[in-house]
Simulated assay, not measured.
Amino acid sequence: MTSAATTISRGQATPGAPAPIGLLRLLPGLGVSAALAAAGMALGRIDWLQNHGFSALTLAIVLGMLVGNTVYPRFATASGAGVTFSKQNLLRLGVVLYGMRLTMQDIGHVGLAGVTIDALVLSSTFALACLVGTRWLGLDRKTAMLIGAGSSICGAAAVMAAEPVVRARAEQVTVAVATVVVFGTLGIFLYPLLFDLNQYWHVIPGGAHTFGIYAGSTIHEVAQVVAAARSIGPDAADSAVIAKMVRVMMLAPFLIMLSAWLARDDARRDEQDGATRNATTAPRKVTVPWFAFAFVGVVLFNSLQWLPAPVVAAVTEIDTALLAMAMAALGLSTHVGAIRKAGVKPLLLAAILFSWLVAGGAMINHWVPVLLG
């Protein structure tokens, strides 16, 4: 009788119970992430911070790290589930909705030369990151790849999007984002000076329009591109933003190819070592990032221009909030001690990549239009 009663009692408690319990477990962490994201977005509207390229995403992760390394450990147990949900699930949704900022028409504005420039800058920068980072500096592959993704595509958003593909730890992601902030901010002040020098050197012919393409194809984040190009002039700003958006559009195929390459490379290493993975280590499969396909779908949908401009603006604002929550959650999960342990090598790699973006990117921007006629 007791056994039957227990069974009945369990059966009655089970239906519908996990949903509210699961939601309640998420609420504290979601609340903390949302509060930090809102603060980051509010600070991101300050003119001085905007003019210096500090976006809401950058500010959200900084606030997250400040709270995460001070008061957050006191309530981390209660908030952990929601914070993890923010930096994983909300991140993917944010990457998908990022497509509302882009249209296929953007490609036409920069032409074949602009698309080729973006593709060459992306591939060469990421390849250099993997080669120099792992073979010369001795960094672990995941950190090198995340720094390479951030430098070659679109800064913090690319680092976050690549994180589930490379299976990185929170501190590795934060280190990569920090390098983007440092050198992207430096670019804001450097590129207007380079434009003045280019007036005499003519490394990049064509004036402000083509220099804007150079800036958009080589500066890390969208906010940093806008800040730098606006200092040059409206023509440079327009072409820089378009070139940057085309570069962002390459995020989806990059993630798919990266996933396939990692799966193939891991299988090759196992074969060369003559070892098989033990039962506790699952073999790496091609991680098809569904959110990358959804990102492309959103870009294609947005290209149809069926939605009114206010709706697109509202969705974009929601997307910024989602990404800011993900960045805040990442900051909460990051310990300063782990970043210190990473040392100066990640910063050195980022400096090398930044130098390549400035110098190598200038050569790519010079020769591609010449070769394509």
Rank of each mutant, 00 (worst) to 15 (best):
A168H: 11
A168R: 06
A168S: 15
R169G: 06
R169A: 12
R169V: 02
R169W: 00
A170S: 15
A170Q: 14
A170C: 08
A170V: 11
E171N: 14
E171R: 12
E171F: 15
E171I: 09
E171Q: 14
V173W: 01
V173Y: 00
V173H: 00
V173K: 01
T174M: 15
T174E: 03
T174V: 14
T174C: 14
T174G: 15
V175D: 02
V175G: 10
V175E: 03
V175C: 13
V175S: 13
A176L: 04
A176I: 07
A176S: 13
V177D: 06
V177P: 07
V177R: 06
V177C: 08
V177E: 05
A178Y: 01
A178P: 03
T179V: 04
T179H: 04
V180R: 01
V180Y: 00
V180A: 08
V181M: 09
V181N: 02
V181E: 03
V181R: 00
F183D: 05
F183I: 05
G184C: 07
G184I: 05
G184W: 02
T185A: 12
T185K: 10
T185Y: 11
T185L: 10
L186W: 10
L186D: 05
L186H: 05
G187V: 05
G187H: 10
G187N: 07
G187R: 05
G187A: 06
I188K: 02
F189P: 06
F189C: 09
F189K: 08
F189T: 13
L190M: 12
L190Q: 05
Y191M: 13
Y191H: 11
Y191L: 13
Y191K: 03
Y191V: 06
P192H: 01
P192N: 05
P192Y: 03
P192E: 04
P192Q: 09
P192R: 04
L193F: 07
L193H: 09
L194D: 04
L194R: 03
L194A: 11
F195S: 06
F195I: 07
D196E: 15
D196R: 14
D196L: 14
D196I: 12
D196T: 11
L197Q: 07
L197A: 15
L197W: 15
N198Y: 00
N198F: 12
Q199P: 03
Q199H: 14
Y200V: 10
Y200C: 00
W201C: 13
W201P: 00
W201H: 02
W201I: 15
W201K: 00
W201V: 15
H202F: 04
H202G: 04
H202S: 10
H202R: 10
H202N: 13
V203N: 03
V203T: 12
V203G: 12
V203A: 03
V203E: 02
V203I: 14
I204W: 02
I204C: 11
I204N: 02
I204L: 07
I204G: 01
P205T: 01
P205K: 06
P205Q: 00
P205I: 02
G206A: 04
G207T: 02
G207Q: 03
A208K: 01
A208M: 02
A208S: 08
A208F: 04
A208W: 05
H209L: 11
H209W: 13
H209R: 12
H209S: 11
H209C: 04
H209E: 09
T210G: 00
T210P: 03
T210S: 09
T210L: 04
G212M: 04
G212I: 07
G212P: 11
